[in-house]
Simulated scan of single mutants.
Amino acid sequence: MTTDALEAARAGSGTAFAELVEGHRGGLHRHCYRMLGSLDDADDLVQETLLAAWRGMAGFDGRSSVSTWLYRIATNRCLNAIRDGRRRPPSEPVPPFDPPEPSSRSEVTWLQPYPDRTLDPQDRLESRESIELAFVAALQRLPPRQAAALLLVDVLGYDTAGAATMLDLGPTAAKGLLQRARAATGGLPTSPEPDAGRARLAARFAEAYAADDVDGVVALLTDDAWLAMPPAPHIYAGPGPIAGFLRASATAHGAGITLVPTGANRQPAFGCYLGGAPVGVVVITVCNDKITGITRFLDPGLNRRF
């Protein structure tokens, strides 16, 4: 960013404004995604953020960096969207078969995966854990301001005083939000770097899953593994319930399943196709040499994003 570009943007130059904000677009998108848990909602909120910034550019006083100013707008736009009920759970899909009774039901049915292919080399320097599905899902269960405080401090690196200013709160209130959010989620998780073993495990999963080899899939699971299927609320916990669901599904779908490798939330993932038609995305969560979670996103519109 140059002073000339800033002054030109303040004077109404769209070209200068684009120069100021373009380098922040990816980070803003991931921030909105973490806040909202939805790719589609993140798309909308980034556009709202940049439109609000453009309209307010003449009044930007430069007391903070452009980056801080943009993240403050984005955070508060996301909080407004949640408050106004715009993050509504999608309709629950009706399966083409009678599934077994789930172990539990999730309230976070709007969760969507984040495509790794959209990350540029600089993006990849971010903490992998900050975009993993389990962390993003945990954020959705927090009160929105707690989630915002946690993201501003633990992910984006602002100090508590800076986060308080961005949230229009006093430092004590912001500190309290942060402490409660960390207590509820355990803070930003840590996990070992991926290795070749994870890739081999993903390949074995894909082979078994595509072949409807339920026993082969189950052999790769931990004892506490789970299967979730947003936007359906069903969760199957443990190898037995997961096997029961997979067998019921295999009996019903008939045509062969094809899995195409991709990456989501810096986790192994696959585009899922049934008889050649897109039927969603599968993301697996891996710990050491076992699969701890399978998230089968049932939205066929996601395939084009990957």
Rank of each mutant, 00 (worst) to 15 (best):
L188E: 07
E193M: 12
P278C: 07
L28A: 07
R83Q: 10
F297V: 08
A277E: 14
S13A: 09
D43M: 05
Q146H: 14
D154T: 10
V279L: 04
R10P: 05
P143I: 14
D215K: 03
D98S: 14
Y71H: 13
D4Q: 14
A53L: 04
R247V: 05
F297M: 04
L20W: 01
P121Q: 06
L246Q: 01
R72T: 11
T75H: 07
K290E: 08
L20P: 08
G256A: 10
A16K: 13
T165P: 10
A11T: 13
L51H: 12
V66P: 02
R128N: 08
N303M: 07
T190M: 15
D154I: 06
L227F: 02
A269L: 09
A203Q: 10
L178D: 02
V136N: 05
Q47C: 07
P90M: 13
V136W: 01
N265K: 04
A183S: 13
E126Y: 11
G170L: 01
G37Y: 04
L151F: 05
P268H: 00
P192C: 08
Q112A: 10
G27R: 11
V155L: 14
D116L: 05
R105C: 00
Q179I: 10
L20S: 05
E193K: 12
A228F: 05
A248R: 03
P99D: 00
Q179E: 05
V214N: 04
S130I: 11
T285V: 04
A225K: 05
P268E: 03
I294W: 12
N80A: 12
T2F: 01
G186Y: 06
S65D: 04
A184D: 14
L20M: 02
A184C: 07
V260D: 00
